Computed example of a mutant assay.
Amino acid sequence: MRNRRRRSRAVVALATAALLCGGALTACDAQGGNSGAPGGESAHGKPSPKPTPAWDTSPRSLAAVGDSITRGFDACSVLSDCPEASWATGTDSEVDSLATRLLGKTRAASHSWNHAKTGARMEDLDGQIQAAAAERPELVTVMTGANDACRSSAAAMTPVGEFRADFEQALRTLRRELPKAQVYVASVPDLKRLWSQGRTNPLGKQVWKLGICSSMLADPDDLNSAATERRDSVQDRVVAYNKVLEDVCAKDRRCRYDGGAVFDYRFDGDQLSHWDWFHPSKNGQSRLAEIAYRQVTSRKPMA
């Protein structure tokens, strides 16, 4: 009798299991429970979908924020913006902007926007990003920080802590408005190299007297210890700003810093505006577009 009862209980257990698994085959496997199929495949033999990569190498719209460089200042005429020559969103074929390279000429005309402003500093970035977010771009380019170092004097430069706080706030705004937008952050250019290149041109030095980046460019031929120390302090501040850009961007999986590519680029006379010998010429704007395109279309960040 005991053996019969044991067999009866076993039959009932098997029947119950068959009913449960028969109604939901995907919930049971040879190992029991809800464990997945071997090799990352579903019970139907199809591979599990791959996660969407954090960085899309072919965004379909672009908004640019930043300062005079992104506005194409002095690329076409003296002391004036020339947005058509902008490295980010320009339409000039000589520049071949990032927007044109990514989107094509026709789409770039309707799906790229330039919210940069000549004279802007990092504290202005939050407002620019708010304006850019209204366009719902898939990629936002950021190039700012030069004006934080280019002040009336070295003492007037933006403190590094404030620079960091302003950049963090701008990225928080971006993430609130556009959680999935990608961000390309260009490093601040090597201002000391721009001084060393431009100081050989008499016309450029006359324009510098109008107040362009006085902290670096004032008294360009003065090589005494005080002037050298002043320029070195500006250079050190630019390096510190770039470290902030790198550190803050690294905390956002959809943010890509250029690894110092713009800072490291060896700009020469051909890449400098012949109106002020400081801002990029059309040739220089094209080099910036080229650097950005390589960074944005690379599957992994470039060193």
Results as ranks from 00 to 15, higher is better:
E84K: 12
M143F: 05
Y293C: 05
I291G: 01
D166H: 11
L203I: 11
A109T: 14
S286V: 03
V160G: 00
G260I: 13
R193F: 01
P47S: 11
A18D: 03
R237L: 04
I69Y: 02
R9F: 03
C21H: 03
K205L: 03
P159I: 15
K46R: 14
E168S: 14
G33H: 09
Q128R: 09
S58F: 07
A15I: 08
A240M: 05
F163Y: 15
G127C: 13
A134W: 05
D232V: 06
T173E: 07
Q295V: 03
E41C: 02
S8K: 00
N114Y: 10
L102V: 10
R2G: 02
Y265D: 13
P301E: 00
G211K: 10
A10D: 04
S77H: 04
A64S: 15
K243Q: 15
V140H: 12
P47L: 11
P49I: 13
T100S: 08
R199Y: 05
G104P: 02
D270S: 05
L217K: 04
Y293P: 01
R199N: 10
R2L: 08
C28H: 10
K117V: 09
H274P: 01
Q197P: 00
A186F: 02
F167A: 00
N3G: 02
A88T: 10
V95P: 05
T52R: 04
C213A: 06
V234I: 07
P159M: 12
D81T: 10
G104D: 11
A10G: 02
A18I: 13
D222S: 12
A116L: 07
A240W: 02
C82P: 00
A37F: 11
E138M: 08
A109I: 12
A165V: 03
S97H: 04
T106L: 03
K50A: 07
L210F: 06
N283M: 09
L19E: 08
A132E: 10
W208S: 06
Q271W: 02
T200M: 07
N283Y: 03
V160R: 07
P280M: 07
V185H: 00
D74V: 01
L191S: 03
W55G: 06
S112E: 05
P280W: 11
Q31P: 00
W208K: 05
L139V: 13
P220E: 04
W87A: 14
P59K: 08
P83S: 11
A24Y: 11
A15G: 09
K192Q: 14
D67A: 12
E290K: 05
T118H: 01
T144C: 09
N283G: 05
I69G: 02
D252T: 11
A227F: 04
V207E: 05
R136K: 15
A134N: 13
R193P: 04
W275F: 15
D166T: 13
E246R: 06
